[in-house]
Design a protein around this nucleic acid. Structure first.
Lengths: 184, 184
DNA sequence: ACAGCCATGTAACTCGTTACATGATTAC
DNA sequence: GTAATCATGTAACGAGTTACATGGCTGT
């Protein structure tokens, strides 16, 4: 029946399984706040077109009252989401790491520029970590076994672990680069 | 002058800065072997079209003898690569993690399926790690300061650290899930 | 001789982005 | 009243994928 949709569609559909119906605008905010750490933050325009597609497939319904059009899962949507989770193999994570890419080429720019880049990255990692820690805190109180945010809290911790490790390895690399520098 | 190319173009261009000229086919192999760990493994057809574009921009030249057409950096290409490294800010890494995404939705499938997924992921991480360790080993002997693979070896270690941490956090999550399960 | 790898592309398509456009509501 | 935020789209484009097509060379 319904051909497999892109993963991002299921991701957005999944965001509708928590709590109340959301407008496209709110859904975008959720994605920016949480989904972006382990998937993507789709553009506003894509959120709306995905919602239209999900609606065309009967996976979401428009709950039309209030400010704007709020969307919620249909029974069909929930079934399809479960089917997808059960049937489709996840595949391996994909990391697009522009800093690592540039580090590979650092011979072309020299150690000073490299260290500067790594310092800047380290700061960015800290900021990102702070943002995710706030998300993690916001889930407290509903993160016990059987509660709504049980699994989401695990995902948040996964992300925190990733960012913590990222900070650590960058610090290690910086130390190593510093040690290699000739005394001046 | 030359508008900024996509990052993947510079990544492929960068692979040509090590050692001898490469054919499109060989370049694809390099990308599959190394670049895929922190950027992407572009499709065969994309490698060829990127090479054509780079050639059209005068950033690579065809070294036509031997089996097939080998490509190497031009002076212009090296200058452009350096310019790009110096001028364009790297941006933050993007992680697309289908396992984390599914973990977020695990309430829909229950703990058994979740544990199974995490076990499978853990194995995949081990395989990936083994592949990257082999790459790391292949760089030994040329990874000292000032040598060709100095920076690439750092990138490999970065990746190994990432995969090691990934394995650890998944083991922790599995333990946590196991502890939550009612005695049966 | 046949399988498998080396080698190079074209065509069709989809995902996702940026830019553009519009208007309503809310806060100050 | 005017700026910011809420709200929803369309259009054009580009990056990257899969499927298709072709042919030479190599080992057995």
């Amino acid at each position: 029946m319904s051909q497999d949709l892109p993963v991002t569609s299921y991701a957005l559909l999944g965001l509708l399984t928590f709590g109340e119906p959301l407008t496209g605008y709110e859904l975008k905010q959720r994605a920016d706040r949480t989904l972006r750490f382990y998937w993507v933050a789709p553009a506003m325009s894509q959120v709306y077109s995905e919602l239209n597609r999900l609606h065309a497939h009967g996976l979401v319904q428009k709950d039309g009252q209030g400010r704007g059009t709020a969307y919620s899962l249909t029974d069909r949507g929930e079934r399809e989401l479960k089917r997808w989770l059960a049937d489709e193999p996840p595949g391996f994570p994909m990391l697009k790491h522009p800093v690592a890419l540039r580090l590979m080429l650092s011979a072309l720019v020299g150690p000073e520029a490299t260290e500067q880049m790594l310092h800047a990255h380290l700061e960015a990692v800290h900021d990102e970590r702070a943002a995710l820690e706030e998300v993690r805190r916001s889930l407290e109180g509903h993160d016990g076994p059987g509660e709504v945010f049980h699994y989401p809290s695990m995902v948040a911790e996964w992300g925190l672990s990733y960012l913590g490790n990222e900070a650590q390895i960058v610090r290690d690399l910086l130390e190593r680069l510093g040690a290699e520098r000739p005394e001046s």
